[in-house]
Design a protein around this nucleic acid. Structure first.
Length: 436
DNA sequence: TCTGGGGTCCTAGGACCC
DNA sequence: TCTGGGGTCCTAGGACCC
């Protein structure tokens, strides 16, 4: 057994709102989120096929719907199934309510929203104020959230953030209480038996495959693999994986969840294959202007731009149906102007494009620097900005808290095919209510 | 997965500098 | 010139997460 005496022993809660979007929609309809049969489905997306953003537990159970199902897999004519349009703004509001409740149990500095439905709370110093055990406090938080919002929450409790995340993902979701508690000593019993490696946070399908090729078929195998060999084969990821297999996570929450790099980007899957240069450049301009507007609203200038182009499947050369495309980055003179960002994006495009049919376009700006110039750009005011002021504020609060994994509101309106429609979207989905 | 959208982080090779 | 070694920056590409 590894000697854990030098590892941090904290009381970390990782709290996740169960089937969040679907639960919010269930509550809004007076339904119990655990009993309702409901999906939140975006039917207005570009491909026309629709995408399931969330499914209630019963919808998953009865129809086998998963969160990435296509609309074609959803029995839309079945009367038992409730289909809800996404209302991203409502979900943001509910998330803010829930995080506000957490502030009754821990100081704001100890609460770290991780995504729209997950938060990490360092309860080390405060849990004793609310109960006789962390478990009991978790129960109280669950009840408080349920009482205020109708949402069920799942809580992973751990000695460090990693163990809390594992407790949440691997065990809590299956417990009747929706709570699980993991200590270092539980690692051999609870973590090592896992053979479905891509169930583990930070291991995706590619890494799982590569591990299998090295005869690592379980977390137990990983924990007993030669760490130097892992490092050689997987780089720093290898060292990290090895540490994770022993439940070790030395990062302090604040460091870990404060991003080192920040970028703003927007992307679109196009409604059809695009082959005409002028049409493509209209869309590039729209996206570039969205990104530039976001930079300006955050008072940042970018010094790197990246253009990503995804080809139509028709461009796929080998027999395996794989998407292809290119990405291209460029260091640029710091800017956040529509004209400059657009020019760089179109230059990159013209340099790399050889008349392939396109299906996907993304533009991202990074290596951000504070915009000190703050010049008034009289001919470039964003008229929608004032109108959306309240929503912007809300989203900025979340963005600020999240640091990353942030929510994105596409507020820029410009002439052009998709921009006006997309202006109402939040995170690429319908925002709901007043802003459309 | 015949394609959602928005992010962060890591690696590797080449250019360039001293 | 059959030229060392270390460091940084730039770009492309890959992987993963929610």
């Amino acid at each position: 057994m590894y000697n854990y005496s030098n590892e941090p022993r904290k009381v970390i809660f990782m709290i996740d709102s169960k089937s969040f979007y679907a639960s919010v929609e269930s509550v809004a309809r007076g339904l119990n989120p655990l009993r309702s049969i409901l999906v939140v489905m975006s039917t207005e997306n570009n491909t026309g096929s629709g995408l399931v953003l969330a499914a209630s537990p019963m919808a998953k159970k009865i129809f086998g719907i998963t969160n990435v199902s296509r609309a074609t897999d959803v029995p839309i004519h079945d009367k038992r199934l409730v289909i809800a349009q996404p209302r991203m703004n409502l979900y943001i509001e509910e998330n803010l309510k829930i995080n506000k409740l957490f502030q009754q149990f821990a100081s704001n500095d100890d609460i770290h929203p991780y995504s729209i439905d997950e938060s990490i709370i360092d309860m080390t110093t405060s849990w004793k104020l609310f109960g006789n055990s962390p478990y009991e406090v978790a129960r109280k938080i669950q009840l408080a959230v349920k009482g205020k919002t109708g949402i069920y929450t799942t809580v992973g409790i751990g000695d460090n953030p990693l163990l809390a995340k594992f407790a949440l993902d691997i065990e809590a979701k299956h417990n009747h209480s929706l709570i699980a508690e993991w200590h270092y000593e539980d690692v051999p019993d609870k973590l090592w038996p896992i053979t479905q490696l891509d169930d583990i946070w930070s291991i995706g399908s590619r890494t799982a495959e590569k591990l299998k090729k090295n005869h690592i078929n379980s977390m137990n195998d990983l924990a007993h693999f030669n760490p130097y060999e892992l490092k050689n084969k997987f780089g720093v990821i290898g060292s990290q994986l090895f540490a994770f297999s022993w439940g070790i996570d030395r990062s302090i929450i604040h460091d870990k969840y404060t991003p080192k790099e920040k970028s703003y980007g927007n992307s679109q899957v196009l409604p059809k294959d695009y082959v005409i240069q002028s049409e493509i450049e209209v869309v590039i301009r729209e996206i570039a202007e969205q990104v530039a507007a976001r930079l300006r609203s955050h008072h940042k200038v970018a010094t790197v731009i990246n253009l990503g182009i995804g080809f139509s499947l028709a461009e796929s050369t080998d027999s395996g149906k794989k998407y292809s495309g290119f990405g291209s980055s460029l260091k640029i003179d710091s800017t956040n102007s529509n004209a400059q960002i657009t020019k760089y994006a179109i230059d990159l495009f013209q340099k790399k494009w050889h008349h392939e049919a396109l299906r996907h376009i993304s533009i991202s700006c990074g290596k951000l620097v504070d915009d000190n110039s703050q010049q008034l750009d009289m001919f470039d005011t964003n008229n929608t900005e004032q109108k959306n002021h309240n929503l912007d504020n809300t989203i900025d609060i979340i963005r600020k808290k999240y640091g990353f994994k942030s929510i994105v509101k596409l507020s820029s309106k410009s002439e052009g095919a998709t921009a006006i429609y997309r202006a109402g979207l939040v995170g690429g989905h319908a925002g709901g209510n007043t802003y459309e």
